[in-house]
Amino acid sequence: MKTPTAIASLLLLAAIPAVAQDKSAAAPAPAAAAAVSPELAAARETAAAYVAAYNKGDAAAVAALFAVDAEWISNEGVQTSGRAAIEALLKSVFADSKGRTIALGIEAARRITDDVFSVRGEATVSDPDGSSAVNEFTAVHVKRDGKWAITEFTELDDESAPSPATFLQDLAWFAGSWKSTEPDGMKCTVEWSPSGSFLTRTFSIPGAEGDEAREGTEIIGWDAEQEQIRSWVFESDGSFTERTWTPDGDRWLVLSRTVLPDGEVGSEEITVSKVDDDKVSWSIASRSLGGETLPNIGPVTIVRDK
């Protein structure tokens, strides 16, 4: 098993601004450089603190930057769940790797919403015998109680990009048949594509009195360029929707934009919460259509159709 090197770089990410780009986060700014933003200055200060903590073998200080329910996936696909488990993993690494040091680099940080951003970077770990290893990684951060917390971290393989299915594992529980507990009679089925690279959701909604029945298909996949789970919905009336999915603990924040058959455009923010393995709650806010504000919807519950 490869040593989980990139996990060590995550402390840096907690203070990175949503649109900052920096290749040498742990290094001081050159004297002749342009004025540094307060956010980037904070990121560099945090990076320096992280390097010091890692090189002292302080697993607790590193783990404190993760959310309590954070997920970390190694470049071999091994998943570690929760801050406590991540701290235990780091303690094991430090115990087996005396004298190891780390250098950090951030390739890009991208704002998703005011409270969410993603980061791509690399960590270079050097051992006393002169050998070193470099791992790239991606991470998602969510602001909770006024502080940034790492909620999802994926270490990338040095030689090849990870399978798209790797990034969809947090939605694997969604596979199966579901039905609404509301009178609308909505039913849907979520299945993996034959290759395992996408999730496909087919749904149907019987028409209420005076309304036509609706059905459609949603394809959920990983966008490697945007480093984001995205989906595309195609409905029987000719409308289509684009969505982005961002994890936040046991819920997902889904930004949605729809184009109706007549060209009118609508948008909304959907919150999908996993209640348990057989129950999901969702609600819709910030709804608009053609520039007009619409009322919120939900929460609505769907249950597994056994």
Rank of each mutant, 00 (worst) to 15 (best):
A61Y: 07
L40F: 02
D157A: 06
A15E: 13
I219T: 15
D158S: 12
V275I: 14
S236C: 11
E71I: 11
E182K: 13
T80S: 05
D211C: 13
S197Q: 10
Q228R: 12
N55L: 06
A8Y: 08
W192T: 03
R44G: 09
G298Q: 08
E235H: 09
V93F: 06
A109K: 02
A103C: 01
F153W: 05
P295Q: 08
N55K: 08
W148I: 09
R83K: 15
C188G: 14
E218Q: 15
D278C: 03
A208V: 10
V19W: 06
L294E: 12
Q21C: 10
E292P: 06
F137T: 03
L65A: 14
A285W: 01
W192C: 06
W222N: 01
L171T: 07
A133C: 00
L255N: 13
D114W: 03
T5I: 12
A42E: 09
T241C: 14
K91L: 05
R287D: 09
A123W: 06
R287E: 08
G146L: 04
T151H: 13
E76F: 07
S283G: 13
A18D: 12
P206T: 04
T124C: 03
D278L: 07
K91C: 07
N55Y: 01
G77V: 04
S132R: 01
E122L: 09
V116C: 07
S131W: 02
A35E: 14
